[in-house]
Amino acid sequence: MPLSRRSILLAAIVAAAPLFAALPAHADALDDILKTKVIRIAVPQDFPPFGSVGTDLKPVGYDIDTAQLIADKLKVKLELVPVTSANRLPYLQTKKVDLVISSLGKNAEREKAIAFTAAYAPFFSGVFAPAKTAVKSAADLKGKTIGVTRGALEDLELTKIAPEGTDIKRFEDNNTTMTAFLSGQTELIATGNVVAAAIIARNPPNKPETKFIIKESPCYIGLNKDEPKLQAEVNKIIVAAKADGSLSKISQKWLGQPLTGDLPS
């Protein structure tokens, strides 16, 4: 039953999309933030190490630290809004948050709906499975069962590249996807490098290894379209944070390695 509910939900979002576009442009988001001295940022809570929870159920992680960094630089108070991958864009589009820092990848479909700032974190998506599973490319997925988180970038990409006869099982959040893989319900898992790293760190019997990379997609901060001032301001903060090493420090803390290479801006 949850399956059909979600499909209807997705249909509703798609149907509602023109409504979002029809909204009249109103006051500049940056002005509002500076005036109210509060920035509302959507962060994940089901996606360690980007966003997870501490013992007090408050969000912690790479994305939360990045959010804090931006709030500090803007000299405003940070209000964290925990979201899931299914509702993070509606939160932004209905202006319930100012920014989405939720390990958000960039793609053409999303670019139609929202705007992005420069990348702030490294990320790639791949297909992972135990060594004994013989899969080298998307074509080998035929007849195999693969788990993926619904609405995540891997879901969109996998749906495109998987051959007919692939049994794609979609789960509501990353952790369910992970649990399904660990318990053997799915033979393969399509997910991000960091999730795979978390699985490997736990040393399960069906220890996954990278079979092939679906897509390299660094994380961007999402914001509403037509907010050039906010976009420019956040970009300035990211560039400065990359230059002075504060972003690298966050990376070291949560991903275990400093920022390497160039993140696209």
């Binding site: 089901d46 360690p48 997870s52 925990p82 509702n87 990353n174 736990r202």
Partner: peptide, 23 residues
Amino acid sequence: ASIIGFVELTKAGTMINNATFQS
């Protein structure tokens, strides 16, 4: 109701589960 941001029983369970992995 967790879809609109409520951290009720099920949602809290999911959150804690992915921080502890003790499903």
